[in-house]
């Protein structure tokens, strides 16, 4: 799906846990996430901590969308 969105001309960032799959599939902007059942959360944390974590990750995704890339790029931080 990520490639078709990219192909359509819309900048897209893929937020996922299993980064190697994303690389194989061909996403260009990749932000690694927490875990498969809760990519943007962590039930072990308090509600506030979890919210901050999510905001940090989505913020990273927004940063990725603002960053020019030449090819597949994983935004670790």
């Amino acid at each position: 799906m990520v490639k078709e969105i990219e192909r359509a001309g819309i900048p897209v960032v893929h937020m996922c846990t299993v980064v190697p799959i994303s690389l194989t599939v061909g996403a260009n902007r990749i932000v690694p996430t927490v875990a498969i059942p809760h990519p943007l959360g962590n039930p072990a944390l308090s509600h506030e901590e979890e919210h901050d974590l999510r905001k940090k990750l989505v913020g990273r995704a927004l940063k990725a969308l603002e960053t020019p890339v030449d090819g597949q790029t994983v935004f670790e931080e």
Partner: peptide, 21 residues
């Protein structure tokens, strides 16, 4: 994705965040 990307463009969407599990 091919189909909904067209709608996204029609809606004036300029960027997409795609989340996967």
């Amino acid at each position: 994705a091919d189909t909904f990307s067209k709608e996204l463009i029609a809606d004036g969407v300029q960027a997409v965040i795609l989340t996967s599990t």
